[in-house]
């Protein structure tokens, strides 16, 4: 589904990713861990197509197609979803209005008519229930005055609505208390299928207790320096990142 080869990327001429290789197949859950400043969030932004990041070398292939030249919205139309670490506020635009616009823009890109209001409403209800989202929440301005938990839950709600092929969860656990973490993780687990894939970007092990990865990769200095199964996450939790740094720098 996703094949990244020798990916180099920089922002404002500063190299951040220095040769990433990663392959994600349908049905898989990959965790990307690493110390602060290792390039985790950059990787997610580059895959999603944020324009400040310049790809200087390498390829990103999504479903057999090189998406490097595609605009962010085109990648979204193809099924790439990014759950933001810091979701932005859009005052005056309700959660409902925003997701409705997103759904219809995605449909338009596929040559489909707007979703009938009745179907939209049904879908919203269904997904809101899945994520234990209160109806009142849906009429609030997007992310304005939301708590950390509400913001992240809203991200997963949008993911549920858009049904992406590849979901990248960027530090979805940050700012969540244990209950919110459970709800969000449950949501993600319910949305998982053999046809879609999830990349979980996280600093800590705790989210991975709920969303169990098939593979764990450690990112350090813009490179994946170690890959393994879920036990690698436990090892990191126990020993920290220093031994990895030492291993790499040695």
């Amino acid at each position: 589904m996703l094949k990244i080869e020798n990916l180099h990327a920089s922002v404002e001429d500063k190299a951040i990713l220095r040769g990433i290789n990663l392959e994600v197949k349908p049905g898989e859950v990959h965790a990307i861990m690493g110390p602060n400043g290792s390039g985790k969030s950059t990787l997610s932004s580059v895959i999603a197509g944020k324009e400040e990041y310049e790809v200087t070398d390498g390829t990103i292939v999504f479903n057999e197609e090189d998406i490097n030249e595609l605009a962010a919205e085109e990648r979204a139309h193809k099924g790439v979803f990014l759950s933001f670490q810091y979701p932005v506020e859009i005052p005056g635009v309700s959660v409902t209005n925003f997701i409705k616009t997103a759904i219809n823009e995605n449909r338009k890109a596929k040559g489909l008519e707007d979703m009938p209001a009745k179907d939209m409403l049904k879908l919203i209800r269904e997904k809101a229930e899945l994520l234990e989202i209160d109806r009142k929440f849906l009429s609030r301005s997007l992310n304005e005055g939301f708590s950390g938990g509400e913001k992240k839950r809203n991200e997963i709600f949008q993911m549920a609505m858009l049904e992406p092929k590849l979901a990248i969860l960027d530090e979805t656990d940050s700012g969540l208390d244990i209950d919110a973490l459970r709800i969000v993780a449950n949501g993600v687990n319910k949305l998982k299928s053999k046809d879609n894939a999830v990349i979980v970007i996280t600093h800590y092990q705790r989210l991975l207790d709920h969303i169990v990865p098939d593979f764990v990769h450690v990112l350090y200095n813009g490179k994946i320096v170690k890959s393994g199964g879920k036990e690698l996450a436990h090892e990191l939790e126990e020993k920290g990142y220093d031994w990895i740094k030492e291993e790499v720098d040695a």
């Binding site: 999603a48 197509g49 944020k50 324009e51 605009a71 962010a72 919205e73 979204a76 139309h77 979803f81 990014l82 933001f84 979701p87 932005v88 859009i90 925003f98 616009t101 997103a102 823009e105 995605n106 890109a109 949008q158 858009l162």
Partner: peptide
């Protein structure tokens, strides 16, 4: 970018 990422 947030909107773009959602396909808008």
């Amino acid at each position: 970018f947030y909107c773009n990422q959602r396909g808008i």
